[in-house]
Deep mutational scan, measured.
Amino acid sequence: MKTQEELTEIVRDHFSDMGEAATLYVQVYESSLESLVGGVIFEDGRHYTFVYENEDLVYE
């Protein structure tokens, strides 16, 4: 099982292909040891929320 830090790095790496991230945040109260819930805000103003669970990243 991966730590939240490892899950955060996986998510950060995925979003790095989409541009320069200004902020990546984790909603600790919705996350667990198995999943990471949060969002990313890019330098150009785009904002996505995400759920990373079971090696699957879903974002909108």
Rank of each mutant, 00 (worst) to 15 (best):
F50M: 00
N54K: 08
D17Y: 14
D44M: 07
T49M: 09
G38S: 02
E53V: 12
E43I: 11
E43G: 10
E9T: 10
E30V: 13
D56F: 14
Q4R: 11
E30A: 09
R46Q: 04
S35M: 15
L24F: 12
E6H: 06
V58N: 06
E20G: 12
M1Q: 09
H14D: 03
D17I: 14
Y48V: 03
V28G: 07
S31H: 07
S35H: 09
V51Q: 03
M18T: 06
M1K: 13
N54M: 07
E30M: 12
V11E: 02
L33I: 10
R12G: 03
G39M: 14
V37E: 03
V58D: 04
T23S: 08
T3V: 05
A21E: 07
G38P: 01
L24I: 14
Y29H: 05
Y25K: 03
G39Q: 10
F15Y: 03
L57V: 05
V26E: 00
V51H: 08
F50H: 00
D13P: 03
R12P: 02
G38A: 07
M18H: 06
D13H: 14
E43L: 12
E30S: 13
Y29E: 03
K2T: 04
L57I: 09
D56C: 15
E9W: 09
V58G: 04
E9R: 14
F15I: 04
F15M: 04
M18G: 04
E43P: 12
H14E: 03
N54P: 03
Y29W: 10
D56T: 15
V58E: 05
H14W: 14
A22G: 09
K2P: 07
D17H: 15
N54F: 10
G39S: 11
E9C: 14
A21G: 13
R46D: 01
D44Q: 03
S16V: 07
F50C: 05
V51Y: 07
E34F: 08
L7H: 02
S35V: 14
T23E: 09
S35F: 14
L24V: 12
S16C: 14
E30D: 14
G19S: 05
D13C: 15
L7K: 03
H14I: 14
Y52W: 09
L33R: 13
Y25M: 04
A21V: 15
G38H: 03
D17L: 14
M1I: 10
E30L: 13
D13A: 15
E9D: 08
E60N: 07
G45H: 02
L7I: 09
M18W: 10
E60A: 10
